[in-house]
């Protein structure tokens, strides 16, 4: 009993804090907000143990390494050089346009050698919504932004991380026949990394996907489809959720009446897999988090 009391005392001493030190130096004020600024840059990191990250580290990583390992002996042979190489000092060839020999190599790029460092892992999840009405009236983006905000809780440079961009507005890139112009806001997107990524994935897999009636899995392309397309060597798994699936997210379910309209979204699981067969390795990883796949 005494030891139990001692252990709780120790736990309290590490999770509770004493009174903060008295502020002796005047804090600078932010000219924009008028709020006091600390003297040091404050960043926050993980604030709770993350179940899915533990799962991916202890179970998935091993299994994926065993499943995707390709044995190679020695160094890889250099690619076949199929055209005469010219002397770089020759003034004729020196400043000429000099494309890589053999056309685009994107779809044929082999995967990097298997090492413990490049076992396939989830880098980020990107959520993306296009709001067509916003081309005519920008204020239609507000609903989609609020929805993303409720789903992810991401803010611009949230937690003091300069690389966290929060909810971003996507803009038109090119002119489409009297409908879209470059620079016009057309949607919102958000990148999730680390803890918030795993939180979102857990919510999706445990609350949303099981409650979707007509969703039996992410549809795989037919077996006859080409494996040398740019998409299949990119290592990204994508699928979409319709607007009526969004009510199953608990963050939105609590006050679904507050949203004038819900917007469907694309979900991209971005992994570190590259080269031939990258999408298959990415699918193996994502299915390890219990996201189902089917083949029609």
């Amino acid at each position: 009993m005494a030891s139990q009391g001692a252990s709780t005392a120790v736990r309290h001493s590490v999770t509770r804090f004493q009174r903060p030190p008295r502020i002796t130096r005047r804090l600078r004020r932010n000219p924009k907000t008028g709020l006091p600024q600390p003297h040091v840059k404050i960043t926050t990191r993980e604030f709770a143990p993350c179940r899915l990250e533990d799962h991916s580290q202890t179970t998935l990583k091993d299994d994926l390494m065993y499943m995707t390992y390709k044995h190679e002996v020695g160094e890889r042979p250099p690619p076949r050089q199929i055209r005469l190489r010219f002397d770089p000092n020759d003034p004729y060839t020196k400043f000429r346009h000099n494309p890589p020999v053999g056309g685009p190599q994107l779809g044929t790029r082999p995967a990097p050698p298997c090492t413990p460092e490049n076992v396939v892992r989830l880098e980020r999840i990107q959520l993306h919504t296009m709001v067509k009405e916003s081309i005519a009236n920008k204020s239609h983006l507000l609903g989609a932004m609020m929805q993303m905000r409720a789903l992810t809780g991401e803010t611009f440079q949230g937690g003091g991380h300069h690389a966290v961009e929060g909810i971003q507005i996507t803009r038109g890139k090119k002119s489409v026949g009297g409908w879209l112009r470059p620079g016009v806001p057309v949607g919102v997107k958000v990148d999730l990394r680390g803890q918030s990524m795993y939180d979102f994935l857990g919510t999706l897999v445990e609350f949303v996907l099981p409650r979707l009636r007509d969703f039996s899995g992410i549809v795989l392309p037919p077996q006859s489809s080409s494996i040398k397309t740019p998409a299949s060597v990119a290592g990204v798994v994508s699928f979409g959720l319709p607007a009526n699936a969004l009510v199953f997210f608990p963050q939105i379910e609590v006050n679904v009446d507050a949203y004038p309209k819900l917007y469907g979204m694309h979900i991209h699981f971005v992994t570190n897999a590259t080269g031939v067969g990258a999408q298959d390795r990415a699918r193996a990883l994502v299915s390890g988090f219990q996201v189902p796949f089917i083949r029609r």
């Binding site: 690619p79 050089q81 000099n98 890589p100 020999v101 880098e123 949230g158 991380h161 690389a163 570190n272």
Partner: peptide, 27 residues
């Protein structure tokens, strides 16, 4: 929030999959 596991892989100077330009010499 950034992941503690995300690490940047060092890129090789000459990736083995790249074909050479016509003027490059092979060492």
């Amino acid at each position: 929030m950034l992941s503690r596991t995300s690490t940047k892989c060092a890129r090789a100077v000459h990736p083995p999959w790249r074909r050479l330009l016509a003027t490059e010499t092979v060492t």
